[in-house]
Computed example of a mutant assay.
Amino acid sequence: MSALLTLQGVHTHVGAYHILHGVDLTVPVGEVTMLLGRNGAGKTSTLRTLMGLWTASRGTVTFKGEDITHLPTPDIAARGIAYVPETMGIFGELSVAENLLLAARSARRMADLDAARLDWLFSLFPALKTFWHHPAGKLSGGQKQMVAIARALVEPRELLVIDEPSKGLAPAIVANLISALRELKATRTTVLLVEQNFRVAAELGDSVAVMDDGRVVHRGAMAELIEDGSLQQRLLGLALGAHQ
């Protein structure tokens, strides 16, 4: 598969702190790439750097063959990259509908939203339709996460970047989220997904990169990591079989 996004030797400094130490990462077109690692390994920092929220001090970020390393965040987003941060970034006082409208670059009014695409989003996340006119801030954590992902998908995007969508959610809600993301995966949407929940990673990932101490220390097929308990233990400090 050809690469949609590539990070080569990316270093990031935040103030006096050297956060990323030469990250090499490839995201193939049409696949779900999992970015795994222990807490503090540099996963979120990698996403913030590729989105331009933090500036790489060295190395390059390439998207569809274009160097986007030093572009402002709005310009990166305009190239077709949607970002769902760990905090979700929901506008709590706005309705679900208004949250989605804000993310739709081609729409100024609700009537301008693509009806067919909304129906598709409602099929992925039925709660969106139920709470369409409700303040987003009053939704449950799982429902807010669905709003955040749907907002990123309200218009076609080349790449969807999601940071820990299952964090803090009840197991039943995580199961629903996995189901929705599996349907999204079936559309061949390219996704870069950070997760701490290995079950989610195992269900969704095609390829995997594991980070430690600000660099990628393992790259390969997700299926291989799933089958190798000793590799899971060495890279992540866990074995999938012990958590099923």
Rank of each mutant, 00 (worst) to 15 (best):
L5I: 05
Q8S: 12
V10G: 02
T12M: 12
L20I: 01
H21C: 15
V23E: 11
T33D: 15
T33A: 13
L36W: 00
L36T: 01
L36R: 05
G37S: 05
N39E: 13
T44P: 08
T44A: 10
W54T: 14
T55V: 14
T55S: 15
T60C: 13
F63L: 07
E66G: 06
E66W: 06
D67R: 06
I68M: 14
L71Y: 04
L71D: 13
P72S: 07
T73V: 10
I76G: 08
I76E: 13
A77C: 11
A78E: 09
I81H: 05
A82M: 06
A82H: 02
V84P: 11
P85K: 02
I90T: 04
I90D: 08
E93R: 14
V96T: 08
V96W: 03
A97I: 00
N99Y: 06
L101E: 04
A103K: 01
A103P: 00
A103F: 00
R105D: 00
R108Y: 03
D114G: 03
D119Q: 13
W120T: 11
W120A: 12
S123L: 06
L128P: 02
T130I: 13
W132K: 10
A136I: 04
K138A: 15
K138L: 14
S140T: 07
R151M: 09
A152F: 06
V154G: 01
L160Q: 07
E164Y: 01
P165R: 06
S166P: 03
L169D: 01
A172P: 13
N176W: 07
N176E: 14
L177G: 03
S179V: 08
E183I: 08
L184Y: 08
A186V: 10
A186G: 12
T187I: 04
R188V: 09
T190W: 00
T190S: 06
L193E: 11
Q196S: 09
F198W: 04
E203M: 13
G205E: 12
D206V: 02
M211A: 11
V217I: 12
L225F: 04
I226Y: 10
E227L: 08
D228M: 09
D228V: 03
Q233I: 04
A239C: 15
G241R: 12
G241Q: 13
H243S: 13
Q244V: 15
